[in-house]
Every structure is written in C-alpha cells, then in structure tokens.
Amino acid sequence: MGIESDQVVYEYLSRVGDVAQQRQLPSSTRMRLVNELRGEIDRRRARTPVDSPAAVRRIIARLGTPDEVVTAAGGTPSGGG
C-alpha cells in the first residue's frame, strides 16, 4: 500500500470524523464508523490489481461522501448552506 494512497484514505476518514463530530454523533459511534470504513477500504484495496491514489478514490467514491456515510450512520443531515 503506497504512501500517496494511504494519504487519500486518511484525508477521507478525517473528513468523515469531522462531519460526524459536527453532527454531534457520540464519540463511540464516530470511532466505530471510522474503523468500519477503514476496514472496508482496506479489504477493497487488497482486491484491486493496482493500489494507486486513483484506485483508492474510486473505492471511496463507491462508499459515498463523508456527508452521505455520516447520515447513513445516524447523523442528522446538515442544513443546506
């Protein structure tokens, strides 16, 4: 797993954590969400023939935006703005 690919993952997970905190999800829920996403990304990366930042971005795109995954985890959608 490349450093650049890892950076893409860390940025995504950090954003998910930030959105979850803004939505006031409990700390335990935020930690579980980020850990589950990290595991899912790692599993999908292991199945890709080439581990590149572009491949990681495609994996992340299939999982959803940070807003989408936090909403699915029970976070109240933010107001339009």
Rank of each mutant, 00 (worst) to 15 (best):
V8S: 09
A73Y: 03
T71V: 14
R15L: 12
P49Q: 09
V16K: 00
S27H: 07
I59Q: 00
S14C: 07
M31D: 13
T48E: 10
R15K: 12
S27R: 08
R23P: 01
G79C: 07
Q22S: 06
T29W: 02
A61D: 12
R30V: 14
A72D: 10
A46R: 09
R32M: 15
G75K: 03
V34E: 15
A55K: 03
R47N: 15
M31Y: 14
N35G: 01
E4H: 05
A55P: 06
R23M: 01
A72V: 10
S52W: 00
A61W: 02
Q22V: 06
A61F: 10
S5G: 08
D18C: 03
P26K: 12
L37C: 15
R57G: 14
M31T: 15
S5E: 08
G2D: 12
A72M: 05
S78Y: 02
P77V: 11
R44L: 01
I60C: 03
Q24A: 06
G2V: 05
R47T: 14
G2E: 02
D18A: 08
P26L: 09
E11F: 10
Q22Y: 02
S78K: 07
P53Y: 01
S78H: 07
S78M: 11
I60D: 06
N35E: 13
E36K: 07
Q7F: 12
E4P: 06
P26C: 04
D67K: 02
Q21P: 01
T76N: 11
P66L: 07
A73R: 04
L33C: 14
G17F: 04
P66F: 04
S27D: 08
V34L: 05
T76R: 09
T76E: 08
E11A: 15
I3M: 13
Q7D: 12
Y10H: 10
A20Y: 00
V69F: 05
A73T: 08
A55E: 11
A54G: 00
E4D: 13
V19P: 03
Q24F: 14
R43T: 11
R15G: 01
L13A: 11
R45P: 02
G64R: 13
R32L: 15
V16P: 00
G74V: 12
D51T: 06
T65P: 09
L37P: 07
V8C: 07
V70D: 08
L63W: 11
A46G: 06
Q7S: 07
V50K: 13
I59P: 00
R43C: 09
A55M: 15
V56W: 03
L13Y: 07
R58C: 10
T29Y: 04
D42F: 11
L25H: 00
N35D: 15
